[in-house]
Amino acid sequence: MLVRPILAALLFSALVLPAAAQDADTVVAKVNDTEITLGQMAAMKLGLPPDMASMPAQELWDLMLDQMIRQAAMAEVGEATATPRDKAALVIDRRAYLAGAALERLAEFEPTDAEIQAAYEKAFPADKPVTEYDADHILLETEEAAKAVIDELAKGGDFAKLAEERSIDTGSGLNGGDLGWFTQDRMVKEFGDAVAGMEKGSTSTTPVKSQFGWHVIKLNDSRVQQPPALADIRDALIQQIRRDKVEAEIEKVTAEAKVEKTEGLDPAVLNTDILGTETK
């Protein structure tokens, strides 16, 4: 009476043990001497777009395996005919992948509430209020042209009209020179310094030179910037904390690495065909 249950149990074990024994090193196919493993298949699937990765299991399996078989066959050809450029590119690709994988794992952590609060206070220190400015400007190519605009304004000229007609900054010019609200650090230094030193409602009496040309500025208003609520920028702060941690780790690991630079090489050698890629 017990024979059939025992046989059934043995048969079930025989069926499930091979599946249970499968791991990332399980070989699913061989192309000459190249092994394609289950781990490689799984890694390939992880890199697929969601719509393709959700295909029926057998259909996706066949598609990926066929692709990997073709790839393996062609890779043997590529390896047999590899050029110096190919070999160098393979080293770079491997190095870039491993570095990226390490950084990705490093960034996979959840900052504590204390860390998030500290990042918020660093970004918006209570003892250092930030001023925002609302200003218009007219950008001219020469100092003489800027002085001419200032003279016209002194005689009652309309700032918005002159901005529309004369400003080479066509983006703001079409809006009467309006730059909207901004903080000093968002503008080039010369412009930001000039605005910070102006009185509300005043217009610059001398042109302000920057890398873009000569500015005539009108300061409409200023206000103390109100920091956003922590809850509204929590996700952005988390990303910043992660970036800071990754950057700190890069600096640490690089500083600890033994780096030996070969002296005496001429950088101009990179302008020569050292990889033999030029057509002969």
Results as ranks from 00 to 15, higher is better:
Ala118Val: 02
Thr262Asn: 07
Ala160His: 00
Gln240Leu: 14
Lys30Gln: 14
Trp61Gly: 13
Arg166Ala: 03
Lys209Glu: 03
Ala154Asn: 09
Leu265Glu: 12
Arg95His: 09
Pro50Thr: 14
Gly201Ser: 07
Val27Asp: 12
Thr277Glu: 10
Met64Ala: 00
Ala21Gln: 15
Glu249Asp: 09
Pro50Val: 13
Tyr97Asn: 01
Met41Gly: 00
Phe159Pro: 01
Ile250Glu: 07
Phe212Thr: 04
Gln239Asn: 13
Asp151Ile: 12
Ala14Tyr: 10
Ala101Ser: 12
Glu247Leu: 07
Glu115Tyr: 01
Gln211Ser: 07
Gly157His: 05
Ala29Met: 13
Ala80Lys: 15
Val28Leu: 06
Gln22Lys: 11
Asp178Pro: 06
Gln117Val: 08
Glu108Tyr: 01
Leu38Tyr: 15
Phe12Ser: 14
Gln71Val: 03
Ser54Arg: 15
Gly171Trp: 11
Phe182Val: 02
Pro111Lys: 05
Lys30Ile: 10
Gln71Asn: 09
Met74Trp: 09
Val27Glu: 15
Gly177Met: 00
Arg223Gly: 12
Leu237Val: 08
Thr170Leu: 10
Arg234Thr: 04
Val28Met: 05
Glu59Asp: 14
Asp86Trp: 00
Glu256Phe: 07
Gly192Phe: 06
Val246Ala: 14
Asp51Ser: 12
Ile274Asp: 02
Ala135Ser: 10
Thr81Ala: 13
Arg242Gly: 06
Thr206Pro: 01
Thr279Lys: 13
Lys147Gln: 02
Arg94Met: 02
